[in-house]
């Protein structure tokens, strides 16, 4: 988790996305403890309430779960869950913007498909 925080998204969204990416990359393993809100706060120099907000998104999605008195852990099946959601959001997050940009510069669908097919 060395990515720098930027301004494009809310800090808490970035925190939750970073934890997700760490799970996908195998930096955080299932049933392993994730850094606490206070640890995240210190690491990124952010308010603990903001870090907690990022963690809570993942708890709501059951990607993380709380062990009382110990901390937050990665749920079993978290990786699959994150992949499934990111796949379902792929159209909304990437294809839609791609088509919008293509339209504004006068590229039609066939040309885009050709580009995709010729790219390795």
């Amino acid at each position: 988790m060395l990515e720098n925080l930027n301004q494009e998204k809310s800090i808490y969204v970035q925190i939750s996305e970073m934890i997700e990416t760490d799970i996908l990359r195998g930096i955080l393993l299932e049933e392993e403890r994730v850094p606490s809100t206070n640890e995240l706060a210190k690491l990124y120099a952010i308010n603990p309430a903001t870090a907690a907000k990022g963690i809570n998104i993942l708890v709501d999605e059951e990607i993380l779960y709380k062990k009382r008195g110990i901390g937050m852990f990665v749920s079993t099946g978290a990786k699959e869950k994150i992949l499934a959601r990111r796949r379902s959001e792929f159209y909304e997050n990437y294809i839609k913007t791609l088509l919008k940009e293509a339209e504004s510069i006068g590229l039609n669908r066939e040309q885009i498909i050709e580009m995709i097919q010729s790219s390795k």
Binding site: N38, A41, K42, A45, I46, N47, P48
Partner: peptide, 13 residues
Amino acid sequence: RRVFYKLLLEEYT
């Protein structure tokens, strides 16, 4: 400055 923010957050938590 960075050291200060971390000290502040540490003391705060």
